[in-house]
């Protein structure tokens, strides 16, 4: 009997994560640019379901939702490999710090502190990754050699990537905090039944 219960909660977890992945992918299509000069950097709310999974289950669950979101996005024909990888890396860097902090300290305060940490980690991490990895990959993929010149890369990172990720973090946090406070009672009850 006990074994059955385990199986059931594991299966339910798998299904919940799949559905959150699907919602996350659908939310990717509702996006808007923030910096006029970098129209291709768009904010969407696809990180919200991943955050929810990470806080409800574990940090790894959040990463799994990010994996599925991007896999589905690729499969559905909405993205190209480099953008999808970049999105996955950004999402992972955003989800991990906040969920690790939240699971250690609990409470809304740690959530806010976590979201601030996450934003900083994502902005700096994406800055570094863009400089060394993503921009060179793009310049190869799109055939634009200009993008691989250090000074150009530096401008893109400091004027585009860094402010963009800070704004993105803030916008998602501003959406997520009221959402989370509304969902919290329900959320605690689910956590008790599932894990």
């Amino acid at each position: 009997m006990k074994n059955n219960q385990m199986q059931s909660s594991k299966l339910l977890k798998l299904i919940v994560l799949s559905l959150l992945g699907t919602i996350s992918m659908l939310l990717m299509f509702v996006n808007f640019p923030v910096l006029p000069a970098f129209a291709y950097l768009t904010i969407d709310f696809s990180d919200v379901p991943a955050l929810l999974a990470a806080l409800l289950f574990s940090p790894v669950a959040g990463v799994i939702v990010q994996v599925f979101k991007n896999l589905l996005h690729l499969l559905v024909g909405g993205g190209e490999p480099v953008g999808v990888t970049a999105n996955f890396l950004a999402g992972t860097m955003f989800v991990l710090p906040v969920s690790i902090l939240y699971h250690r300290f609990k409470g809304v305060k740690s959530l806010i502190a976590g979201l601030v940490t996450s934003t900083i980690v994502m902005a700096i991490g994406m800055g570094i990754l863009n400089y060394y990895l993503i921009l060179p990959a793009y310049s190869l993929f799109m055939g634009m050699s200009d993008m691989a010149i250090p000074s150009v890369k530096w401008t893109i990172v400091t004027a585009g990537i860094l402010p963009f990720n800070v704004i993105k973090g803030i916008v998602i946090a501003l959406l997520f905090i009221p959402l989370f406070t509304k969902l919290r009672p329900w959320f605690e009850q689910k956590r008790a039944t599932i894990s």
Partner: peptide
Amino acid sequence: LMMSISLRFI
């Protein structure tokens, strides 16, 4: 399994 559930529910 997760992939098929995700795709099915799009």
